[in-house]
């Protein structure tokens, strides 16, 4: 299962990189440069991605051509967007280390910390 996820990620990265609709055959040839893969494996992966809603496909000639539903930036933004939106309903789905807060509160936090540890600054890496 873990390998499937890995492969799905690799395939998705390629699809985003191509920037145009591609058939399974083309993706297979591309991936085969780095690893041994069967046509059916790549076909399954791309079909999984389609079922999950990340890819869409169109019949061109005799083969399907796949293309991502969202651009990479849109996808990323969507993934994090849900998390960062910070609705209270999310509290049971995921648990954030620190919640979203207004500027005044950030200032208050800094004050509280400074009062106790005046010389403690985050050492940037």
């Amino acid at each position: 299962m873990r390998q499937m996820g890995q492969l799905e990620s690799v395939v998705m990265q390629r699809l985003w990189a191509y920037g145009r609709p591609v058939a399974v055959r083309e993706v297979l040839e591309d991936l085969r440069k780095d690893r041994a893969l069967a046509y059916t494996t790549v076909m399954t992966v791309m079909d999984n991605l389609r079922r999950k809603g990340f890819l869409t496909r169109e019949l061109v000639g005799r083969a399907y051509q796949y293309v991502p539903v969202q651009s990479r930036e849109e996808h990323n933004a969507a993934v994090m967007g849900e998390v960062l939106a910070g609705s209270s309903d999310r509290a049971t789905t995921l648990m954030r280390f620190v919640e979203q807060m207004p500027l005044e509160e950030v200032a208050q936090l800094r004050q509280v910390l400074a009062s106790r540890a005046p010389n403690r600054k985050g050492r940037r890496r």
């Binding site: 910070g86 979203q100 807060m101 207004p102 936090l109």
Partner: peptide
């Protein structure tokens, strides 16, 4: 930028 929503009684503070 910080969110406009300011839920009172912040847990973080």
């Amino acid at each position: 930028p910080p969110a406009a929503l300011g839920a009172g009684g912040s847990t973080s503070l």
